[in-house]
């Protein structure tokens, strides 16, 4: 479900579950974290490109897998938090190619990247309050990346925004017209970054991570705790049940 391809000092980590719109399971997130760590340890890697097969970058958690089992939902949140931290702390720049949509957990991954490419109509947001779940796990990276007003609107309102709007507000850094062009644009940016003096780039990223407290576990752990506390509540169970109830 996760594929790694390394070419010319660029490590591509690919979400490879297109039939499920790359919906995230705990195993998939753990594999992602392990792959990111392995690339981080390889000094020849100068840029990480996080991308996905199929028309949608990532639809979020695989809720079908979690419908009857809130332990799976807990594991998804814990694994997501670990993946976000590991991506954020990656030694060299991380570029995310988010075509089509980056929703909930998928949007959390997007928020951990340094550069983000999306198409104008991509669907972006954190609609999990609709199932009685708090998206707080994404709050630390969003607060580091964009203005507070947009963070509030996105984490509290289950509605989605377009790639175009996310670009206006800085959550997406590079906008293209068509979903098919996202990966090529991201690859170009990755090549641009990988071509720069590696020590200067890595030192600059480390300094930015220091300035925004990326290396500090406390805000991430606290945010994860808030999300975990909403799992398995009556409202969460009943909303999940009604989501899947008529489909058995």
């Amino acid at each position: 479900m996760i594929r790694v391809e390394v070419h010319d000092s660029i490590a591509r980590i690919v979400l490879d579950r297109p039939a499920k719109r790359n919906a995230l399971t705990p195993e998939m997130l753990d594999a992602l974290t392990a792959a990111v760590r392995a690339q981080d340890a390889d000094a020849s890697v100068r840029c990480l490109l996080l991308c996905a097969d199929g028309p949608t970058f990532c639809a979020g958690f695989d809720l079908k897998a979690a419908a009857g089992d809130t332990d799976i939902l807990r594991a998804q949140l814990e694994s997501l938090s670990a993946a976000v931290r590991t991506l954020r702390r990656f030694r060299t720049p991380v570029v995310c190619a988010a075509q089509g949509g980056a929703i909930a957990g998928g949007c959390a991954l997007l928020g951990s990247a340094d550069l983000v490419v999306a198409d104008r109509k991509a669907k972006i947001g954190y609609p999990v309050v609709a199932i009685g779940l708090s998206p707080a796990v994404s709050a630390p990276t969003l607060e580091m990346t964009i203005e507070d007003s947009l963070t509030r609107a996105r984490l509290l309102d289950p509605g989605l925004i377009t790639g175009e709007r996310a670009h206006e507000k800085g959550l997406v850094t590079h906008l293209v017209d068509h979903p098919d062009d996202v990966l090529a644009c991201a690859q170009e940016l990755a090549e641009m970054l990988a071509g720069k003096p590696p020590h200067a780039v890595a030192r600059t990223k480390a300094w930015l991570n220091t300035l925004d407290r990326t290396n500090d576990d406390e805000p991430f752990a606290r945010a994860l705790g808030v999300s975990l506390a909403t799992v398995g509540t009556d409202e969460n169970r009943s909303k999940l049940a009604s989501l899947w109830g008529d489909k058995g």
Binding site: I146, V201, L211, D212
Partner: peptide, 22 residues
């Protein structure tokens, strides 16, 4: 590294990240 704290304050950490790394 000298400008980074000022730029983060001025345009936000996300944009500063993109500008300084690129």
């Amino acid at each position: 590294a000298v400008v980074a704290p000022w730029l983060v304050r001025s345009i936000g950490a996300g944009r500063a990240r993109r500008v300084l790394l690129s």
